[in-house]
Design a protein around this nucleic acid. Structure first.
Length: 337
DNA sequence: TCTCCTCGAGATCT
DNA sequence: CTCGAGGAGA
């Protein structure tokens, strides 16, 4: 580990979290974690409850649950004399955790050592687990000088790949669609249980459908399963019967460079093919038209020339029948005739 | 054809 | 944060 502090121009100094590895795996032993907080913002909000569920051989063997008293000095504002306002009505409504409950809750110094002992070096599982880990990481460093370096698995990330057709991937939606019954509201331990059961369903799905997990991510290499071919414009077939033999693009080869403003590249290429033209992925000896999009998003090019444009200019010097078209001219062309 | 990069769009956590 | 699109360069 090289350095923990990095200096930043806009932020005086900002802590870098050296977290464990984000695994793409389906372990059969893990510890689920979940926290409740006073809000979503890592900078201002605090942990009010920690829950954890230890799983071995896909079964729950132990649980951990405790409220945590937030630092009163960092709290919103003392609304009045008799009680500190740790949480607002929204959080109480959402979680059922009240200011009275937090008033008598143990402070982090008391809870965190127990939590560390509970999770040991287990692989952690959570839904959108970055949220929980970031909060815990900071509090652990701050109060007991412990660096949370456990590897972890994110149910949200897995579910987006395994169930791409789901309307969304909120925990409640997963539970409902996977047939996991939700118990009472948003409490740390009950959410851990739900996360655990959803994960078990996901593992089941992966086995039944015989999915190779790794192939869902990279392994874009053509030889492997799960390979997604890059868009090959040469393979586009005409749709409809708009072919026009008198059109300047008819039977000509077109290449695109840069990002088109008014439509995506595939749509533009399809129109070319419908007219009776042909598309290429790169500038070649056959290219007749190079359509120029913009490069505003590409800092390395911006006002310069793309490699495709340079190649095109070389070929034009050699006498090739090739014209460079701006996007506007291109649209005029395809919408005429 | 493959790897690395940057960018923008879109979610999810309380 | 994660992912896909697209460009560059080997």
């Amino acid at each position: 580990m090289d350095f923990e502090i990095r200096f930043n121009s806009d932020d005086n100094h900002k802590k870098i979290r050296i977290k464990g590895e984000n695994l793409i795996a389906l372990p059969d032993a893990y510890t689920v974690i979940d926290i409740e907080t006073t809000g979503l913002d890592q900078r201002y909000d605090q942990i009010i409850e920690i829950g954890a569920v230890k799983v071995v051989n896909n079964s729950i063997t132990d649980t951990f649950e405790s409220l945590v008293q937030p630092d009163p000095s960092l709290v919103l504002g003392d609304n009045d004399e008799w009680q500190t306002e740790y949480v607002d009505e929204f959080i109480t409504e959402l979680t059922g955790i009240t200011n009275e409950m937090l008033e008598s809750a143990p402070p982090p110094e008391e809870i965190l050592p127990k939590f560390i002992a509970f999770i040991e070096n287990d692989t952690l599982l959570g839904h959108n687990i970055h949220f929980d880990i970031n909060f815990l990481y900071d509090l652990l460093i701050e109060t007991v000088d412990h660096r949370l370096s456990n590897n972890f698995v994110d149910l949200l990330r897995l579910s987006r790949k395994v169930y791409p057709h789901f309307e969304n991937h909120k925990l409640a939606t997963l539970a409902s669609l996977l047939g996991v019954k939700e118990v009472k509201g948003h409490r740390a331990l009950s959410d851990c249980r739900i996360t655990h059961e959803c994960f078990q369903e996901l593992v089941h799905s992966v086995h039944i459908r015989n999915i190779d997990l790794d192939s869902l991510w990279k392994s874009r290499s053509k030889s492997r399963p799960g390979y997604i071919r890059a868009l090959d414009l040469r393979e586009l077939k005409p749709e409809g019967f708009t072919v026009n033999e008198d059109h300047p693009i008819y039977d000509k080869y077109c290449t695109f460079t840069g990002k088109l403003e008014r439509m995506d590249r595939r749509t533009a290429a399809q129109i070319v093919v419908n007219i009776g033209g042909k598309c290429l992925n790169s500038v070649t000896k056959e290219t007749n038209f190079l359509i120029l999009g913009n490069f505003d998003y590409c800092s390395s090019i911006r006002d310069g020339k793309s490699s495709k444009l340079k190649r095109a200019e070389e070929l034009m010097l050699k006498g090739q029948d090739l014209k460079v078209l701006s996007e506007d001219i291109f649209y005029d062309l395809i919408t005429s005739y």
